[in-house]
Design a protein around this nucleic acid. Structure first.
Length: 1179
RNA sequence: GCCCGGGUGGUGAAAUGGUAGACACGAGGGACUUAAAAUCCCUUGGUCCGUAAGGGCCGUGCGGGUUCAAGUCCCGCCUCGGGCACCA
């Protein structure tokens, strides 16, 4: 009977479905094994042959483990929220849910055809509300948690509040602060905490929550209309689509992954992941040890020089780090100023509040880094009432106005006197100005945004606001100066200047009047430059002097402070101590601006370059002179600590992860705003279902698409959902929120990585309605034993995945803190692309010729004729064609006709045969469909064929090199496809797909099938196997068993081939051989194995069969054929009994006449005999 | 620039320091066949000597080294792929 893959595979697909063969129970009596493939995004393009590679490998392991007595969890589902479906929705108006559904159905169909043992009853999709309910729930847990560095774990935020109420946040306790704000928040007492308004308290808490709202620099991608996480940006463009990305500051939900930096690093040590994967994560986390060094400011320049109040600068200078604390204080201050307005302010407020001017006016509002007295956000008008103090700071006010102007605000000022004299007149004046101003289209957005800003203590906000004169606690000992981070404190004596990032918050403060214009211009241009531009110009040195000086902590000398964009705002403190003698970047900066370069290490040639060696001796003057670098680092750190000018410090490159997306197709963030402060939706309100919208675009005012939804609000007293029915009584906490009505809901949605950060847990218990997964299920299944997926997820998914797992562990929801014990990356299967060389017409025609409107077809040149073209031999031919096509251009001067340069144009690989010959008629058909308007000419070989070129590259639709598994399956069957993908080479390696090779595995299956048949009749004998047959069987079982353990599937397939070939030669049709072999083959080729199994008379599925053990006794040989080598070169083979001792082998070898002949009578210097291996004779 | 991987026939590749190229594709030759497909058999790293049987030499990116023995270990380079990148 011939092997009919189509019929067999269909039969067993149906049968498996019917029988529920792959259904997995949470059966706790069996040992468990959890095999997981990385979550696929169901793209519209469907699967190509590269996608299933990892799935096949993991399926083999899953099936093998099942044969070996494990209860195996091997689920599949879809990461079904994401940008492509949404982009498609924007273009076509199709709801992303619909496209996603269709794509998933197509994926399912394709996956089913390959014969995977997935338990589809456990399928999860991130876009299903019963799934994302729990994604939202986890978000709420993150929002409700802070990271306690003392316990080194996440804790409920309630504990923090209790602590604040009891002891405030002081001294040692201030260390509790994590991440960006670690050092920034000023201490406060319990009493102060209690006196804070609800608003202020919530803002302080934002600094601690693991999911928090802040104003942050983000990667904004205008083309995608959303922010991107760092790992989604590659080389300054978006990973998806390659759109430019710019830096932008905006309110943003973030995840405090930085709190976990050290644990994410440490955890790697115990994981069985590839080194490259671990290295990528280590790199991304980027831990570096060094010291923080504080440079006090040199005596401040006079107020005139500085252009601002002298007391502000040093005080502010105490708050040098990325500085939410100041903002926190600023807000608190703004609040208190609202409560304690000046008389004039209050007088005016009473008139203009409410609808007094026809516009909503806010008072004491933070804009950028200033608190303004009054503002109309929609009309972008700032109203200032100046007290006497302003007379002293005209210049600062001017600077402030400039900054506000940049942001689109105009400022009108009134003096106290004016207000006192006639408040109404002032009001009318304001009304008049307001009425002339156009309402900024983004009214709503702006109002919200700035409110959020105001509600959020912002990093790097600080200096400059009037009335923010520092409290006593901000002055005094707290004043530290400029803090820098360095990994080389040993080079401190080589510091010749400091450099601040242009975004550094002290730049404004430190800039002297004379330098102001230059600095501001510089800061402006460098912040406006896109990331890409900045990256492209890394070799360009730029910077500007602020005019100020800092004090060297050891020498006390004045060190000039510069601004330079080679310093990154986001790393360390955004400031560096420049050691041009020891750091190449500093060196280039110093060279460029003629700053002094001090040699720090012995033997350095500082004229040529900085010396960055770490195995050197310090030579700069000072107490470190003569010390080895590592010793000097230690000593310098100690000295800094003694002086209170710094301390040892560890820095991470890892940034907090941007979490919100200004997009529709994602999980809604379960947050509502009351008084602009984010509050968590009560758990009972989950899931917060993604609302329907009329369009999937941002609103006219630039708000995310969710803002289009009707009633996108939350009313504590009226339950959301299901038409307001069953309005259960609100919980006490809900009551506490008051009943003012509907609060706006958050309009950004979660990023793609949210749902995929915990999906492995849901598979354990996918239908649980009361918990993300039951503790029983989690305790049983535990961690993933084998996680299979692409290495491109090294710094994105896999880091967040580990982060959420650690978090859930901290809060006691799961009993382990790493998701996947073993990780294997399958390589990429590349495509083979075919190209037709095309004459580069610009080179050919446009040379020195007037060519307006001239047309020419594309000249496609067969590979073999290229040399002829390059020698210009075809130019007459081309010229005539060119003239033919341009009858209106009789006088075209084709001065020099050269077709020396060729471009490669993709053609579908399917149109090219295995000798690279193009099927011209199919090609013509394809062209007429694909580019009907474009003319072309083919230049054939002399034999009339057209030969293409080939290249291996990524498999993708646009390169016309995609091979669809469906086609392969139709022709050869799924089992052949599975075997071939495994046979192609080592799993981890990337390799090109070449369909030609598939014949080999296809033949193998036929041969294997034929072992069971004689002619057309099933013929399996019950005869006892011979030793030779047993040897084939057991050698195969041994090899395959060992290879599966090593995930070396290509060699196991080769071994199956050897077995089939040898058993074929032996004409073996014996059950005792074939049956175990069939079980061993089952994980690789499940359909044919299942069919043969049933033909062997089994009613049960082969998947329940026990894995056959191999026995060494069948592999024992009585003789071994020793290779006899002379000086390591094998010359002959001699067979001896295995039992023969080394000495006997040696004697026998030397006695051999051929060996004697080769020795030419000389005695060998040495004879090495390795038992059952080799004999080497040294002569 | 830094950090990871790789580099073996025409191709995909195999090889606990112990016979380099298993297995497969492709190619060449042959059998069966009216023919083709399918199937089966033989040859297939390069090169030289030989009519032949057979034999010699060279070969795992390059150059050194360790060893009785190196694709495998060590040192230095070249090169391809991936990750990170003014990260102080």
């Amino acid at each position: 009977m011939a092997y009919d893959h189509t019929e067999i595979e269909k039969k067993w697909r149906d049968e498996w479905r019917k029988r529920g063969t792959y259904r997995v129970e949470n059966d706790t009596t069996l040992p468990k094994y959890y095999v997981l493939d990385m979550f696929p995004y169901p793209s519209g393009a469907g699967l190509h042959v590269g996608h299933p590679l990892g799935y096949i490998a993991s399926d083999i392991v899953a099936r093998y483990k099942r044969h070996s007595g494990f209860n195996v969890l091997h689920p599949m589902g879809y990461d079904s929220f994401g940008l492509p479906a949404e982009q498609y929705a924007i273009q076509t108006g199709q709801h992303p849910a619909k496209t996603t559904e269709e794509n998933a159905a197509r994926y399912r169909e394709q996956l089913d055809r390959i014969g995977f043992s997935f338990d589809w009853s456990r399928e999860v999709r991130t876009s299903n509300a019963d799934y994302y309910k729990w994604t939202q729930w986890i978000f709420l847990q993150l929002f409700d948690s802070w990271y306690d560095p003392k316990a080194d774990m996440a804790r409920p935020i309630a504990e923090l509040i209790t602590r604040f109420e009891a002891t405030g946040c002081q001294g040692q306790d201030a260390e509790v602060l994590t991440g960006d704000i670690e050092e920034a928040i000023g201490p406060f007492t319990a009493a102060e905490w209690k006196s804070f308004s609800e608003r202020t308290q919530q803002m302080v808490l934002q600094h601690f929550r693991l999911a928090y709202l802040s104003d942050a620099w983000v990667n904004w991608c205008p083309a995608l209309g959303t922010v991107l996480a760092n790992d989604e940006v590659k080389d300054g463009v978006s990973e998806r689509g390659g759109h430019p990305v710019e830096r932008k500051r905006m309110p943003q939900w973030s995840m405090r992954i930085t709190a976990y930096a050290q644990r994410l690093l440490d955890g790697l040590d115990e994981l069985d992941w590839t080194t490259s994967m671990k290295e990528a994560q280590r790199n991304w986390i980027g831990r570096s040890t060094g010291a923080s060094v504080r440079f006090a400011l040199s005596p401040s320049p006079s107020p005139e020089e500085r252009g601002m109040r002298s007391e502000v600068a040093p005080a502010r200078a105490g708050y040098f780090t990325a500085d939410p604390a100041i903002a926190g204080r600023l807000m608190a201050h703004a609040n208190s100023m609202r409560k304690n307005p000046t008389d004039a302010e209050d007088k005016l407020w009473q008139l203009i509040r409410g609808k007094g001017t026809g516009e909503k006016i806010r008072r004491q509002h933070i804009i950028d880094r200033f608190i303004v007295d009054f503002v109309s956000l929609p009309k972008r008008l700032v109203i200032e009432v100046d007290g006497d103090i302003h007379d002293l700071q005209k210049e600062e006010d001017a600077a402030r106005s400039i900054r506000l102007k940049e942001l689109g605000f105009d400022v009108i000022r009134f003096t106290n006197d004016e207000v006192y004299r006639d408040t109404h007149q002032v009001r009318d004046k304001i009304k008049e100005v307001l009425s002339k101003r156009t309402n900024v289209a983004e009214e709503e957005k702006l109002a919200e945004r700035t409110d959020v800003e105001a509600a959020t203590p912002l990093p790097r906000r600080g200096a400059g606001g009037e009335g923010t004169s520092p409290s006593p606690s901000e002055k005094g000992p707290g004043v530290k100066g400029i803090e820098v981070f360095t990994t080389r404190p040993d080079t401190l004596f080589g510091v010749s200047f400091l450099t601040l990032a242009p975004e550094h918050e002290l730049v404004q403060t430190l800039t002297t009047a004379t330098q102001r214009a230059e600095v501001e211009a510089y800061v402006k241009t460098s912040t406006n430059r896109s990331e890409r531009e900045r990256q492209a110009e890394v070799d360009k040195v730029s910077g500007v002097f602020t005019g100020s000086y800092a004090k060297h902590p050891f020498t006390g000398e004045d060190v000039p402070i510069w601004v330079g964009d080679y310093v990154l705002a986001g790393y360390g403190t955004g400031a560096v101590m420049a050691v041009p003698g020891g750091d190449q970047r500093d060196w280039r900066f110093a060279k460029h601006f003629g700053l002094p370069i001090i040699a720090v290490t012995e033997g350095a040639d500082i004229e040529k370059a900085a010396d960055e060696r770490k195995d050197a001796v310090i030579c700069s003057e000072g107490f470190l002179k003569g010390m080895q670098v590592p010793d000097a680092i230690r000593r310098a750190t100690e000295e800094l600590e003694k002086l209170g000018a710094g301390e040892g410090r560890i820095n991470y490159r890892l940034r907090d992860a941007a979490f919100g997306r200004q997009r529709y197709w994602g999980e809604p963030i379960p947050i509502y705003y009351k008084d602009d402060i984010p509050y968590p939706l009560p758990e009972s309100e989950l899931p917060l279902v993604l609302p329907e919208v009329d369009k999937f675009l941002p609103t006219e005012t630039g708000e995310p698409p969710l803002a289009r939804a009707k009633n996108w609000t939350y009313s504590p007293l009226h339950r959301r959902g299901a038409g307001g029915e069953g309005s259960g009584s609100p919980s006490p906490s809900e009551k506490g929120l008051g009943d003012e009505g509907a609060y706006p809901l958050e309009t950004t949605t979660m990023p793609g990585w949210a749902g995929s950060s915990w999906y492995f847990l849901r598979y354990m218990d996918p239908h649980n309605e009361g918990r993300f997964a039951s503790p029983e299920a989690i305790n049983y299944w535990q961690q993933i034993d084998l996680y299979m997926g692409g290495s491109e997820h090294a710094t994105g998914h896999l880091l967040y995945f580990r982060f959420w797992t650690k978090f859930l562990f901290d809060r006691g929801w799961i009993p382990f803190d790493e998701p996947a014990k073993k990780l294997v990356n399958q390589g990429m299967i590349q495509g083979v692309s075919a190209f037709t060389p095309v004459v580069h017409t610009h080179k050919a025609f446009l040379h020195n010729s007037d060519r307006n409107g001239a047309k020419a077809p594309r000249f496609l040149v067969s590979k073999g004729r290229i040399p002829q073209f390059q020698e210009n031999a075809a130019s007459d031919e081309l010229t005539s064609i060119y003239k033919e096509n341009n009858p209106g251009f009789p006088e075209i001067q084709i001065e020099e006709f050269q077709a020396t340069s060729f471009l490669n144009q993709h053609v579908p690989i399917a149109l090219v045969d295995d000798k690279d010959r193009l099927n011209v008629s199919l090609f013509n058909d394809w062209r007429s469909q694909h580019a009907p308007d474009e003319q072309y000419r083919l230049f054939l070989e002399l034999d009339g064929t057209f030969v293409c070129t080939r290249e291996v590259e990524k498999m993708s639709k646009s390169k016309f090199n995609v091979v669809n598994p469906d086609d392969i399956i139709e022709k050869y069957g799924a089992d052949t496809l599975r075997l071939y993908e495994m046979f192609l080479g080592p799993l981890e390696q990337s390799k090109p797909w070449d369909t030609n090779g598939i014949e080999g595995t296809s033949r193998f299956l036929k041969k294997f099938w034929n072992l069971f048949f004689e002619g057309d009749v099933l013929s399996v004998s019950e005869e006892a196997p011979t030793d030779a047959e047993q040897k084939v069987l057991h050698a195969t079982l041994k090899k395959v068993t060992e290879d599966i353990g090593k995930m070396s599937f290509n060699t196991s397939v080769a071994q199956f081939m050897i077995a089939a070939n040898e058993l074929g030669t032996l004409k073996c049709h014996k059950r005792d051989i074939l049956e175990p072999l069939t079980i061993a083959l089952a994980p690789f080729a499940p359909h044919i194995a299942e069919e043969l199994w049933s033909l062997l008379g089994h009613a049960d599925s082969i998947t329940t069969a026990k894995w056959p053990q191999w026995h060494a006794r069948f592999l024992e040989e009585s003789n071994f054929s020793y290779p006899i080598s002379f000086n390591g070169k094998t010359r002959l083979q001699l067979e001896f009994p295995v039992a023969l001792s080394k000495e006997d082998v040696e004697a026998a070898v030397l006695a051999n006449p051929e060996v004697q002949l080769r020795l030419e009578g000389k005695a060998p210097k040495k004879v090495i005999v390795v038992h059952k291996r080799i004999v080497n004779i040294v002569v």
